[in-house]
């Protein structure tokens, strides 16, 4: 059984969070650069240029890209032949999250759902992290991290359709969710679509779909075609960067599909803003 030190995990998570808060991933940066060239609306073009300027300032001056530094979301795949020495993996991830958000001068945004009291002095600074664990073969731990802001979560939706809704029903639903969201989720967005499974499986799949790099193809031909259809329909909505009108509303649609119950067709749509802060690392 391979062992990984508790403190190694803490430090890795801390550094990943700080890095992500100021360094826009290359996939989104490149997609923005391409968009500036093709955007037809001068207002939206100016917004896209500002977003790129912002990314350059954030990186060179190590300032957070956005003041909404999000809730910390993790997908962690733990090999069955590895264990943490000196503590629990969940505790290490939470400790790394707290250190990263504090040391990086990031905003603590977790609060009690009713009193709205900030939890930084009770549960911990921007704690608890949202962690999805999975067990896999091998002796490695793979950590995927995203800082998930509130604006784009607020417009995300899920619904269980009757099977008769079919592919057309799903495509129409995704278009409707993005249309209703307008400029609120800070477009240009990435749209994560989770299909099938149970209700919660669809939702988690839609979140995980956002981790895929923009520009990569869905290996499933049918899903790849659906993604292209959805992307075209979304960009035809005219919402544009920050909702000010334009030809570029989404950078990509990513679908994750699962087998489901004979009676149901769950669909979840999770939206990601242009400040798509995500990264992964393998220990």
């Amino acid at each position: 059984m391979r062992e990984i030190e508790f403190d190694t995990v803490v430090k890795t998570v801390r550094d990943l969070i700080i890095h992500c808060s100021t360094d826009l991933p290359e996939d989104m940066y490149n997609a923005l650069k391409t968009s500036v060239e093709v955007e037809k609306s001068p207002v939206a073009k100016a917004v896209l240029e500002q977003i790129l300027d912002n990314a350059n300032i954030a990186k060179t001056e190590e300032r957070p890209l956005c003041q909404d530094t999000g809730l910390a979301v993790f997908f962690v795949r733990v090999g069955e032949e590895v264990k943490i020495k000196g503590g629990l993996l969940r505790d290490a991830i939470n400790m790394g999250t707290e250190q990263g958000y504090k040391d990086g001068y990031l905003r603590a945004s977790t609060c009690h759902p009713f009193s709205r009291a900030n939890l930084k002095d009770t549960i911990g600074y921007n704690l608890p992290a949202i962690i999805h664990f999975d067990l896999v073969a091998g002796d490695k731990i793979e950590i995927e991290y995203a800082a998930k802001g509130g604006g784009s979560e607020n417009v995300s939706r899920a619904r269980v359709f009757p099977p008769a809704a079919g592919k057309e029903g799903i495509i129409e639903y995704v278009r409707e969710v993005v249309s209703d969201a307008g400029g609120n989720p800070c477009p240009p967005i990435v749209v994560g679509v989770g299909i099938g499974g149970t209700f919660e499986k669809a939702v988690i799949s839609s979140k995980h779909a956002l981790f895929r790099d923009i520009g990569t193809e869905n290996p499933d031909e049918e899903l790849n075609e659906m993604e292209q259809t959805m992307l075209e329909q979304i960009n035809n909505l005219g919402i544009g960067a920050m909702g000010m009108g334009g030809t570029k509303t989404a950078m990509a649609v990513h679908i994750e599909s699962n087998p489901c119950h004979i009676a149901s067709l769950p669909v979840s749509v999770n939206i990601q803003c242009h400040s798509s802060r995500h990264a992964h690392i393998t220990l």
Binding site: T22, V47, Q50, I51, D53, N54, I57, A58, E61, R63, P64, L65, C66, Q67, D68, G151, G183, C186, M242, G243, M244, C273, H274, S275
Partner: peptide, 13 residues
């Protein structure tokens, strides 16, 4: 007025 969401570093400056 609308400011650019997600341009926090630029606007903070």
């Amino acid at each position: 007025f609308g400011a650019t969401g997600g341009a926090g570093a630029l606007l903070g400056k």
